[in-house]
């Protein structure tokens, strides 16, 4: 992919980190405010997509990012299944909220048991997955060849 003009590049450099931070905020507050793992994950992916659109990339780095993001995506999936299994092992029900039996406290970040970790797992999976999709669509020539 080719890079874009310096205007886009500088603004992307300024904003990408903040976009990432905001995505993480949405992921972390999924149980308190609207949003959650998916919405936040999309923002996180957008931060990376913004950077690679603005600066462009060569095949070599694309391939590396693709490998890395697909591994991270798988890790996110495994993490999510593990969290669901934790409930299964601890209290007999898949997806049972194993950490707490209460209903959570409004406006407290660390509450609601496994909802927060599950949101984080989804955020990782969606973020890495969308970025991988972007790379696969933008650079399918080598990705599909494997």
């Amino acid at each position: 992919m080719r890079g874009m003009s310096p205007v886009v590049q500088v603004i992307a450099r300024l904003l990408a980190g903040l976009l990432f931070l905001f995505g993480t905020y949405i992921v972390m507050h999924g149980h308190l405010t609207p949003g959650g793992g998916f919405a936040g994950g999309v923002l996180v992916a957008a931060a990376f997509i913004l950077m690679s659109l603005a600066f462009g990339s060569v095949e070599h780095t694309e391939r590396n990012s693709y490998t890395l993001s697909s591994v991270v995506e798988s890790l996110g999936g495994v993490l999510f299944v593990c969290l669901a299994l934790a409930g299964y092992v601890a209290v007999a029900y898949f997806f049972q909220n194993a950490a707490t039996y209460g209903t959570g406290t409004p406006l407290k970040l660390i509450s609601g048991g496994m909802i927060l970790p599950a949101n984080i797992a989804i955020g990782i999976k969606v973020g890495a997955g969308l970025f991988a999709v972007f790379l696969a669509l933008g650079a399918s020539r080598f990705v599909m060849k494997d």
Binding site: L75, G77, V81, Y88
Partner: peptide, 20 residues
């Protein structure tokens, strides 16, 4: 009854583990 969800969990987990 605890075995029932395993029909979904096992292949799902392996679908994520295989790429790794």
């Amino acid at each position: 009854a605890r075995f029932v969800p395993l029909f979904v969990i096992i292949p799902l987990a392996s679908a994520f583990l295989i790429p790794l």
